[in-house]
Design a protein around this nucleic acid. Structure first.
Lengths: 183, 183
DNA sequence: ACCTGAACACCGTTCAAGT
DNA sequence: ACCTGAACACCGTTCAAGT
């Protein structure tokens, strides 16, 4: 990759992050091109689909998922407190960019999604938290990690689109937690 | 309303129902106008926003919600069976039109949504099922009907967008049920 | 090899002219 | 009072011409 190409690519991703943050994940692409000082064709050369640009933008996002998983596992309040901490942090992360929650959640477990990389990292972090708790015998035997990921992602999607506050989200996450914790 | 206007309106709704069913809730509007044999301006006169057309199309949908609530309450298998029956039927109904689940769910509890009428009817049916079970002491004291509606709607949204099958949906609904049933 | 930007396509929305 | 359809606007996508 030529130096000017790399500079353009980086600039596009940087600007896209801002624009997606401000106006949501389906903001006009030519606004991004304009602000980045490139022609629309350049944006298309680097990112043939909107999803590929999403993927690049969410790179930073993903690096924090593992941090959050660790923090949740270190949380006091036993398995229930840890589960809730994890769910809460994850929903917060997902709803940081409007429109991201639904996209990521519906790509979970789809091996050929364009944002596959991000999904795998989240799925791994989620599995790490759940497996840790399962080893302690804290969870029902029949819960699958993917199902839990989709449930929490569903809450995040609804919260994102309906613009719910934390006090509305918390009790929904508690229902999910109670549904998977061993009696 | 003049007779020809009414005829046009009815035809638009009828065609819109087919087109939304075939191509999802954000299918091109001028395809609907074309198939209904009217100019685009006529469609706009009757339905100034896409949401208002959605609302008209979902009228039939909504009439079946109450039927389903009754069926679920008559279900055998005790409170858990009844809850699951209700959730399952509701998700099936919501995912019948691609894109409808997320729209309806995120409008729940928003008094000035354009599809408010539909949401209220669903919320009422949901409340009827949950209240009946609560009177029997089958549910935890602190579950709010709206939260449950959003949880199930979240599952429906994810199932809709990821095109999940019933065998993937069922265990997620079971988690929600277990999360709200009294121990 | 990469970029630009004019050109095209698609679709939502408006409105002047018609009945 | 209602309808039509041309016209406009917006935005995604392509590609010939440039460096």
């Amino acid at each position: 990759m030529r130096a000017d190409a790399k500079r353009n690519r980086d600039k596009i991703v940087e600007v896209a992050r801002e624009v997606f943050k401000e106006r949501g994940m389906d903001a006009p692409l030519d606004e991004i091109a304009k602000r980045a000082g490139v022609g629309p064709g350049t944006l298309y050369r680097h990112f043939p689909t909107r999803e590929e640009l999403h993927d690049a933008v969410m790179q930073a996002w993903v690096e924090r998922v593992n941090e959050y998983a660790d923090k949740a596992l270190a949380h006091e309040g036993g398995p229930r407190g840890q589960l809730l901490a994890w769910f809460t942090e994850y929903v917060a992360l997902l709803t940081a960019h409007k429109g991201a929650a639904a996209r990521i959640t519906c790509s979970l477990g789809m091996p050929d999604s364009p944002i596959r990389t991000k999904c795998e990292i989240y799925a791994a972090a989620n599995a790490r938290v759940l497996d840790t708790l399962a080893e302690q015998g804290a969870l029902r035997a029949d819960v699958e990690n993917l199902q839990v990921a989709r449930l929490v992602g569903g809450v995040a999607s609804v919260a994102d689109q309906a613009e719910l506050g934390g006090e509305q989200i918390e009790p929904m996450l508690a229902v999910i937690a109670d549904g998977i914790l061993a009696d």
